[in-house]
Nucleic acid binder design. Structure first.
Lengths: 145, 145
DNA sequence: CTTACTGCAAATCTTTTGCAACGTC
DNA sequence: GACGTTGCAAAAGATTTGCAGTAAG
């Protein structure tokens, strides 16, 4: 965890962003909840418990930067806000199962799309840099209803 | 086209929604632009040219209904608004290539995911009803930059 | 004639921006 | 010390809601 934190700070520095206490804290909040897909609001809520001074705009600005330098990326689960996830989390082969009843998000690994990507690049001349695959449906607990 | 329009009206009726002129018009706008992925704002803009009286809230409310009864579904291309697409459009095997430079959206067909879905249902006991696959990258025109 | 639907305006919610004060390098 | 960064408050967008009037079945 400390290792990741340090490498993210380095990446910020490389891109000549300053390592401020707020940015470090936001990174720590994200690392502590790496399994969660937090939204800006949620990051702010947790961050405020650690430092009540921190502003929501700072959180938004930091997440934007972390997205730009590819530490995070945005995901939309259709619940009205942008959520974030670390980019290096099994990078290319992890997808999401989203329950349309309770909203739970389950992660799922598979590398089937590698093949598809190469095929797309050949066939359509579109240069693929990333993909997102979401399955909607009902989780185990919601199927009875 | 007329056939689809009629069947959509029927579906509205079945669910005991009224067939108002506004709803008919919104459906026609959507059918006339079935290749486009319009947002609520865009639907309203086109609709207003046909009937300047129509209100934006009506458009939002109608799109919500059409989504609920599965005539449309929402897609998010990361441009800050919800876009819509007919649900029956090659339903299960059409995906999107989104250019992160110019924002162009290219459609792409493939049925690879059918297999994956069955596999997920077996493996995770998640009941899949739909999926969304998006590839991000650079379209032909933007690759030179 | 009843109940759902509409248009408008106001409200809400998420995200962005302007700006003076502040802190990192 | 310079310049990027912060917090706050205000602004901006997208979407939702309340309500009185209107119209579909």
């Amino acid at each position: 965890m400390q290792k990741k934190f340090d490498s993210y700070c380095e990446r910020l520095q490389e891109k000549s962003y300053k390592i401020t206490p707020q940015r470090q804290m936001i990174l720590k909040v994200l690392l502590d909840n790496a399994d969660k897909h937090l939204s800006a609001e949620e990051v702010h809520y947790i961050a405020k418990q650690r430092d009540p001074e921190i502003g929501l705009a700072t959180v938004y600005r930091t997440l934007e930067i972390l997205d730009n330098i590819n530490i995070l990326h945005k995901i939309d689960f259709g619940d009205g806000c942008i959520r974030y996830e670390f980019s290096d989390k099994d990078a290319h082969n992890h997808h999401h199962l989203i329950c349309i009843n309770c909203g739970r998000v389950i992660e799922f690994n598979d590398d089937l799309l590698e093949t598809l990507e190469t095929w797309i690049e050949k066939k359509t001349k579109f240069e693929v840099t990333n993909h997102q695959l979401k399955f909607f449906g009902y989780c185990k607990d919601c199927q009875s209803e």
